[in-house]
Simulated assay, not measured.
Amino acid sequence: MKFTYKIILFLLFITVNVTAQIDTLKLQREARALLREGNKLYNKQKFGDAAIAYRKALGKDSKYDKASYNYGNALYQDKNYKESIAQYELTTKTSKDKFAKAEAYHNIGNALMEQKQYQQAVEAYKNSLRNNPKDDETRYNLAVAQKEAKKQQQNQKNNKDKNKKDQKNKDKNKEQDKKNDKNKDQKDGNDKDKKDQKKDPKDDQNQNKNKPNDQKKDQQNKPKPQQGKMSPEQIKQLLESLNNEEKKTQKKMNAKKAKGRKVKQEKDW
């Protein structure tokens, strides 16, 4: 019984493995068919459609290096440089063929060059040459990338120095403006003090002294009321009235004198 049980388990194991292998082979065949479809679309420069076919192929077989590499090429041609690099990197990790790795690194360098990431492109081209030292095209691209990287670094340094200089000048101008404002405030205060010191106290006295003259002058300039003219008859009446008043006054004065005099009594001899 035990022997029979072991045979049954062994047969089940073989069956499962065979079924799995059949399924794997089926997926690989489907992946290859999708790869061929993608290649046809790629040759027709239908890069977007080709990318879809390659992606489906990878869905059937995730370790399909050719599908991954071609997918990267389709993305590159469609100017999706960042996504293409991810596919090329997958090839460099999974492929066992040095020439395939060299081509993947070479294309990574090209995609980085398109994004003006020149120093990273230099490293990619170096990795490509490590896998295929005889590739003259990669060597040429490496020289171009090194030249552009050096130029980019110099431009970045110049821009950095310029920004520092501009900031320094800005701070210097700001500090100078503060000094100018401070000096201006001090100058205004000094001018005010000097003006107060130069002022003669006699000016106030003269100013006050001139005020009565001004008032007198105003009184002189003030129009006087004009006296009314009298007729000869009015003058005569006025004189007569004054004469009468004078007589009355004289009479009153004499009366006052008489009252004030003592009566002299005659002596009796």
Rank of each mutant, 00 (worst) to 15 (best):
K179T: 07
K151Y: 09
N213T: 13
D177Y: 14
Y42I: 12
K247T: 05
L112A: 02
A121S: 04
A51D: 15
F99Q: 10
Q87L: 06
N73M: 10
D218I: 05
K6M: 02
N73A: 04
K259N: 04
K247R: 07
L34C: 01
I108Q: 11
V122W: 12
G38K: 13
H106D: 15
P212N: 07
T4E: 13
K116V: 01
E233K: 08
Q207A: 13
E148W: 11
D196P: 03
S128V: 04
R139W: 01
Q21N: 09
P225V: 12
Q205N: 07
N70I: 03
R55L: 10
H106Y: 15
L35S: 01
V16N: 04
E266V: 11
D204I: 06
D200Y: 11
N173Y: 13
E30L: 01
D214V: 11
Y140A: 12
N127Y: 07
K96V: 03
E246P: 00
Q119Y: 07
N163T: 04
N107H: 12
L34A: 05
A104H: 13
E240Y: 07
Q153H: 08
T138M: 12
D171V: 05
K134H: 03
K170G: 03
A145H: 05
K247Q: 14
L35V: 13
Q156T: 02
K160M: 02
K256V: 00
D78W: 08
P212C: 01
